[in-house]
Amino acid sequence: MISIRLNGTEEQFPDGSTLAEVVQHITSATQGIAVAVDAQVIRRTEWASTALRPGAQVDVLTAVQGG
């Protein structure tokens, strides 16, 4: 298992987990969301091919009411 920081919380994922799997774990939405790994935006098309290193900081964002 590897440990990553997902939206600010420590979470365990199986070795070799991809970013796509991690995103699916936190939301079922496929539209209207964006992902950053270690403060770098990862395009949607690259989620399935992006492997995660232990300790990676993953942020999954969406639009909310504001401003």
Partner: peptide, 26 residues
């Protein structure tokens, strides 16, 4: 306008869907 925030169970989707329905640019 909308803000960008980390997804959570209560924030998902809704505002995005509403603006699409009303055809208002975000």
């Amino acid at each position: 306008t909308v803000a960008m925030r980390r997804v959570s169970a209560d924030t998902h989707g809704s505002i995005f869907d509403l603006l699409r329905e009303l055809k208002i640019d975000v």
